[in-house]
Amino acid sequence: MYALVTLLRKELADHLGSKRFVILMALVSLSGLSAIYVAGQSIRQAVGDESTAQFVFLKLFTASSGVLPPFVSFIAFFGPLIGLALGFDAINRERSSGTLALVMAQPIFRDSIVNGKFLAGVTTIAVMLSSIVLIVAGMGLWMIGVPPSLEEVLRIIAYTLVTVVYIGFWMALAMMFSIFFKRITTSALAAIAVWMFFSLFMGIIAGLVADRISPIDQDQSDVSVAANEQTASNLMRLSPATLYQESIATMLQPNVRTLGPLTLQDIVGMVPGPLPLAQSLLLVWPQIVTMIGLMLACFAISYASFMRQEIRGP
């Protein structure tokens, strides 16, 4: 146990003191603050006219004035990068520098190394994200002068947790590659390739496959269009990026009532208005559980393959 604590402390100190962390933190805070500033400005203009809309505070995070993307988009974009940056050389750097052998020569269980790195990574992400959310929330509060309601606070906490899981998934994935590949450049490239695939090509592929499985018929009937869209969006849910986007949209926009295309049947009888938090969570529960599952799966694979590996140096 003392060994895990020692490893965890070392890893955390390494992360939090690293240049990498400082750069990422600066980048994300800067873009986050600008996004909130722009959103705050447009909300300030809007406040007073029409409705003093509900959930103004949440709008700070999601509203876009067109000048800059909203805060949540910045995080959705940088999140995977943060995860990859924290994990891609976790094990193979220590292997090639010979420090893995140094640590393995000490009386510790082999799995403490992977566990320590994983826990330290997730903690770092949590620290980074919660401080950024606090900073931008503070600035938002100062700009619009409307304090968040309890529900808004809870929703922001839920958003932060889900984002930690999402970034944690990318870190676990990158860590897995750092165990599979002995060379740092290879593991970095592999991690970036997966990220590119999900963020750029998944949409195209989902569209193509959907056209194959449920093609839109000649006269573009509503039914066939809807079926096609449904298939495509189901396919998209294979991507962690989609799972994340759906989760946070529901979490921060209480008006989101369903995910995916609506049919008339769905809308009939629907009471317009925001969903309570519990209902929102229920709606995206499968997405959240899947993301946690993906993160744990990457961790489990890393764990199993590290336990099997020779510890021999380069």
């Binding site: 420090t99 140094l102 269980f109 140096g313």
Partner: peptide, 17 residues
């Protein structure tokens, strides 16, 4: 684990932080 408590090991490509 018990063995590593009593036995020191200097690996062939040792590295430090």
């Amino acid at each position: 684990l018990k063995v590593k408590r009593m036995a020191g090991y200097l690996p062939e490509n040792l590295g430090f932080y």
